[in-house]
């Protein structure tokens, strides 16, 4: 996995979401950033002090700079993609929910820069859908370079998110590294804090051990209950589930290699004081 995660060494340097984006691939390829120009080691220690810039609290963050087309609307992100990597999910979901703000969080400098450049390029070169009343294309997605394990509450208010994505997270195979996994009993409390009751946590991985880990910890956590894929599709969240399966670079890679993907989704529930 560690090796596979290495960006752009597949020679297919172009953005994976471009095809999904649909329109005018050739034209866009001229201006879209290429992954091979943003290569980086796959790992960053989430416990160390990174030179990160982050707001002290969500209301001190300049959301308008990230979503200029929504400036003044008071809208805040509702979807968060934790460890968004090259941003495939964001790019896939953006046209599906044009009025929902989404934020990717990625700790690696080069990778977050790539997603940033990609969004800038997509925003300025994608022709607007004349039938849509929403702000221009990809105006609803953005990225921050952030350590989500530490600074989630700096970006999101209590109960402000309706969906939280953990797609193909770093498996941290060694037992002594398990504490660095993005799902842990203590971190789940923070995720439950930013998710509104009814909100969904999507997890997917191609590593069976990690799947068991994430599923078990989420099942045991009192503020989450499992929700099946069928149920989500019935609720109209099929397109999200599809994007979770296929839109990311990692998802595509697993498909090429004919590997398995394990999905596990959970709903945020409330508990009483006693």
């Amino acid at each position: 996995m560690a090796k596979r995660k290495r960006a752009g060494d597949d020679g297919n340097g172009n953005g994976d979401g471009v095809a999904d984006a649909g329109s005018s691939k050739q034209v866009q390829n001229d201006v879209l950033p290429q992954k091979r120009h943003y290569r980086q080691r796959a790992h960053a220690n989430p416990f160390s002090d990174h030179a990160l810039a982050y707001p002290a609290s969500p209301d001190q963050f300049d959301w308008d700079a990230h979503y200029p087309a929504f400036a003044g609307s008071g809208k805040r992100p509702e979807f968060a993609d934790v460890g968004c990597g090259f941003g495939g999910l964001l790019i896939a979901l953006a046209p599906l929910f044009p009025d929902t703000l989404m934020l990717g969080m990625e700790i690696r400098v080069q990778v977050s820069q790539y997603v940033h450049d990609r969004i800038v390029a997509l925003r300025s070169t994608t022709p607007a859908d004349p039938s849509s009343t929403s702000p221009g294309p990809y105006q609803n997605v953005s990225i921050v370079r952030a350590n989500a394990m530490k600074f989630m509450p700096n970006y999101f208010e209590k109960h402000s998110l309706s969906a939280l994505f953990f797609l193909f997270p770093d498996p941290h195979f060694k037992a002594r590294k398990h504490k660095a996994r993005i799902i842990s009993p203590t971190l789940l409390a923070e995720y439950a804090y930013v998710l509104r009751p009814g909100g969904i946590v999507y997890t997917i991985t191609d590593v069976r051990d990690l799947h068991d880990w994430m599923r078990t910890h989420l099942e045991q956590f009192p503020l989450f209950e499992p929700v099946s894929e069928e149920e989500l599709r019935k609720e109209g969240k099929g397109p999200i589930v599809d994007a979770v399966y296929t839109s990311t670079e990692e998802g595509k890679k697993v498909e090429r290699n004919k590997g398995d993907k394990w999905l596990a989704c959970f709903r945020r529930i409330e508990v009483s004081r006693d």
Binding site: P55, Q60, F61, A65, H116, I119, V120, I143
Partner: peptide, 20 residues
């Protein structure tokens, strides 16, 4: 950048995406 490790608010200019 001023302020050492915690440059709060420094991200105001973070994303310059209003290029269209």
């Amino acid at each position: 950048e001023a302020g050492g490790g915690t440059n709060t608010g420094a991200e105001t200019r973070d994303v310059e995406m209003g290029a269209s």
